[in-house]
Amino acid sequence: MNYRTYNAEDFLFDESFRQWTSGTSPQATTFWEQWLTQNPDRADIVRQAQELVRALNEHYRDDATDARFTSELNRLMQLAAERRDAEVEPPVIPLQQPSWWRWVAAASISIVVGLGIWFYSSTLFPKAIPDSYAHLTKTAPIPLQEKVNTSNHTMNVLLGDGSLITLRPKSRLSYPKQFSKTSRTVYLNGEAFFDVVRNPAKPFLIYANQTVTKVLGTSFLVRAFEEEKAVTVTVRTGRVSVYTKQDFEKAQKSGLRRIEGIILTPNQQMTYNLNDGRLQKALVEKPTALIPESVSHEQVFEDTPVAKVFATVEQTYGVKLIYNEGDLSACLVNLTFLNENLLERLDIICETIGASYEVLDGQIVINSKGCK
């Protein structure tokens, strides 16, 4: 067998490799240690695969049978392949039922372990200043561990609660091995996609370049490089609240339950300008369907009230449409949709009923005098 061609997920399917990593077979240990000695250039990919196996074993515990292991991996790799064919940037792992193994579906994306952390920490990132990533992580109330992506590929980080972080190149993330009893707090310098396991009892907090993003369970992208003058948070699914760090901590100290911030829903984006300290909400440039399959099949509306068509659009994209339902009560439409994006669908609807629309504060306002 040509192990030279193996990538990280290929090693996962190899029983003897798993036995070596788990320390359950002396024969496997002898073989793989000898093979690694003969193939030192494959050391990095082997270490990546071993990290994945250990994480899987940790979650499976005593139920890590080879049959279940292989069955789960086959199914998840198939899902990952299907998603790769359908997805566009950023790579997103849909949030289904909370489960530790959702991260394995992204194993086809190279998971590169940052071996040069200490070297890069002194050359790529600035010294600690108040509210900086370095200062926040140094003064965190509990010990943290860090992942640094010094590669040109994304890196997947599995947290103790089962949440998955896809860390982009030149980015770093600090987080505790085990979260506290009341919250789940991480620190980001760079860009990462978060797929957070839902837990209303323990809010998930991301500190990133003078902002705090608070979620209960959802998927979203945060871009917060300290050398840049803006922070952006883009929501894929669920609901996210974004605050300035100053406002968030002031409210915490005063005991306020309600904090003024920006609430984002699917396909909305927040931009925080560090120069003027303003939080601005907008619609993402290319809204995506919450369930991609819903826009890949033909949708036919025959003599359908336009309000019902708008409701379908809202449900498909998670975007709020604001309009006067009374004015549009007499509008019946005959439409067929297939593969059109959100704005193209709105163009078709509005042209049909003689209306127009505009995007305001992350929402879409329909302007119409009604139908006669």
Rank of each mutant, 00 (worst) to 15 (best):
R172N: 11
R172Y: 00
K147I: 11
D131W: 08
L167I: 04
A140P: 07
A140D: 02
T154Y: 03
P141D: 00
P176L: 05
P141H: 01
G160S: 12
P169T: 05
T182Q: 10
K147G: 12
T154A: 06
I142E: 06
H153C: 12
E146R: 13
S122I: 12
V104H: 00
S99M: 11
V113I: 13
H153L: 10
K181R: 15
K127Y: 10
V112N: 08
A106H: 01
I129A: 11
S132K: 06
Y120P: 10
S110V: 10
S151H: 01
T137V: 15
H135G: 03
V104E: 04
S180Y: 00
L167W: 02
K138W: 09
S121P: 11
S163C: 00
I142R: 08
Q145E: 02
E146I: 06
L167G: 07
D161Y: 00
K170S: 13
A140T: 03
R168Y: 13
R102C: 02
N156P: 08
G162N: 06
D131V: 06
S171D: 06
P141Y: 03
W103Q: 03
K127G: 09
T123Y: 15
V148W: 12
S132F: 08
I117L: 13
T139E: 10
S132C: 05
I111A: 07
P169M: 05
L159W: 00
E146L: 07
L158P: 01
L115Y: 07
P126N: 09
I142Y: 11
K170N: 15
T154E: 10
I129N: 06
W103L: 01
S180L: 04
Y133Q: 04
T154C: 03
S174W: 04
V148G: 08
V112D: 09
